[in-house]
Write a protein that binds this DNA or RNA. Sequence first.
DNA 1: AATGAATGAGATTTCATTCAT
DNA 2: AATGAATGAAATCTCATTCAT
Lengths: 208, 208, 208, 208
Amino acid sequence: MGIEAHRRKISNEKQAAIIRAAQEIFLTHGYTRAGMADIARDADVSTATLYKHFSSKEELFAAVVKDVARETVDYESLISQGDTARDILYKVARGYLSTQFDNHANALMRIVIAEVPGAPKLASEMYDLLSTRRHEKLRAVIDEMVRNKLLKPHDTEFGVRIGSGALKELFVWPALFDASYTLPPDTDEKIHRCIDAYLALFGVEENS
Amino acid sequence: MGIEAHRRKISNEKQAAIIRAAQEIFLTHGYTRAGMADIARDADVSTATLYKHFSSKEELFAAVVKDVARETVDYESLISQGDTARDILYKVARGYLSTQFDNHANALMRIVIAEVPGAPKLASEMYDLLSTRRHEKLRAVIDEMVRNKLLKPHDTEFGVRIGSGALKELFVWPALFDASYTLPPDTDEKIHRCIDAYLALFGVEENS
Amino acid sequence: MGIEAHRRKISNEKQAAIIRAAQEIFLTHGYTRAGMADIARDADVSTATLYKHFSSKEELFAAVVKDVARETVDYESLISQGDTARDILYKVARGYLSTQFDNHANALMRIVIAEVPGAPKLASEMYDLLSTRRHEKLRAVIDEMVRNKLLKPHDTEFGVRIGSGALKELFVWPALFDASYTLPPDTDEKIHRCIDAYLALFGVEENS
Amino acid sequence: MGIEAHRRKISNEKQAAIIRAAQEIFLTHGYTRAGMADIARDADVSTATLYKHFSSKEELFAAVVKDVARETVDYESLISQGDTARDILYKVARGYLSTQFDNHANALMRIVIAEVPGAPKLASEMYDLLSTRRHEKLRAVIDEMVRNKLLKPHDTEFGVRIGSGALKELFVWPALFDASYTLPPDTDEKIHRCIDAYLALFGVEENS
DNA sequence: AATGAATGAGATTTCATTCAT
DNA sequence: AATGAATGAAATCTCATTCAT
């Protein structure tokens, strides 16, 4: 038992190392140009061992995607007592962007998009992870704000789409076409203009 | 002279056939998996001839991209006398979507995005074509509407970003992750909700 | 007749232009890497015309080789009345080296050597041109010197081999392995040491 | 450990087989016309394996060159007590020629010369191997002969150049232009005439 | 007689995956 | 269980030569 547990631990460590190495290589070279041999080398295992853990390149890539998508922001915890609507919306927007720009989610998204024709299931899973579920979380925050009368009652699902559409348009979309894109210096200003619009649409008078 | 003209005609036809075939193959298989030999076969030329016309795979792909991006909507011509703000905005939105969904612009964009790390110039060119220039055209329409008092004076650049952000969020973004995505049955309804929001923000009272 | 002569003249000019262009390209790129299309372009003719004049790459190359080998030194004319044996031998050596280093004979020889397995006839022809015939000329000079009692009677054929062997060893051989080789500053000194040896072997006493 | 040693042995054998096959093919077809696929076939490995061992055609060729140049004559061991100057010089000349004509050094030299413009470093390395270093060895022998009073004191470096120049002129040069060249029947006679000249120049009286 | 477009055959190199040890 | 060597299949691109006009 002890030895078996030890083995499993070793195995898990190797698996983690593989995923780490694979992430690095995939992000650097893209899917097609990433070489299994390179990944194995960086993970300090043989290619054969690599294939013991992940039976194909595609499966390994899926594991990397899921590993990255796993980490996400807990929006609820961002909100403090006494925050104005603008305060909360700003924190939410910042959280949204940090999820997208930290952990190389943008770069990974590029790769997933590239593999859409070859791996449709993976793509739709990532869309689910990066859009649907995130939207649910965002919507929960907005709903809470409505409940607390920080926003007018409104179709919060549509509201979330409008909001995240604006953020994507301003920050994510250009990043999709430019590997070296980083958030611009006037990010805060742009965010606040989006919040202006949101509050103009759905704010209660005092918060505008 | 006659012979020269003839040759040029033949050559142009071949070139067009190559681009057609290349588009088909690229769209079906993506950039990396597309084989020059397959493209040549489908275009009924030898690979050598193909390379006479386009000196590398990358150049051929760029030609395909430009060929697709070339065709674009003339928004000005959409507007008729007597159109309400809503009428115009609807036509504009529809034009925007048709540019995106006809001619496989979505699928091509996927491929371009995939090649961002390997062909940054191509990517930024396509971003320019598909975002910057289109936004300029849209902005011209909005500016005209403001001049005609169909909309309140406002920062039209930001307005266009909000609008196209919403359309992208609702229609383009999902299409990026799903090769078989088509515009949904309730497209019109969704468009009108976006217009509602736009008019709420920037409309003059009577048009809401 | 007049028009025919004109045509022939044009044709000859084209042929010369082709050989000029071919020499340039062959010298720059070597045989295999030289492209017939490039040669045609530089000669301002079509590839088809090029093939009218020379029915294969090999034949064209042979023409280039012969064209270069055609020009050679007239050793007899070098000798003046009253020259000492050393004077004459020096002029002969210099003539030998100029034949070898002007007109890119070294570079061409490299290419011919490279093509020995593929074009044995051409190679043996060039060997004939660059060795046998030249040796005959040199031998004629030496024979004349013997007749004029500037040298002892000796096996002049062997003498020429010894002499040209020494020159090749010192100057030609290194040039074969170094495309940028040029005659060194102490060329004269080296030549004179060879002459010293030659005179020690075959000179009459007074001339040493 | 055992397995590792075994693997290394197998690997070395494969490598040797590849070099053998490559030598054969290179010698037969020259550098450019030699196909990696053919080499792989003859070595009974896949092209991929071939590329694991030598990461490019050029590198493989360099390995072949070095393998051939590695084997060389130990001139010192040729000399026996009581040998006359002529005896020693004859043995040295024969050793020189055997180095050149066994192991296909001539044929390889042809190929190296052909690649001078494309691979200057390799060419200068081979020149070093085949000329400079060999000359040093020859010179050591001559110096020893001078020390033993078998030859007059003289500039032995120049002497070696004269001697090897004569040998090259008589035997190596024609072999450069004729793939099927072999040492002629009167080789011994020719060698002795060269020795005659050498002794005439640098011999002590009794040995002439 | 001259052209430029077209080609077929072949070149080197890469890579995901398997297998003997 | 783990390895490193081995592979088959494919990819892009080049070039001497020919053919329709």
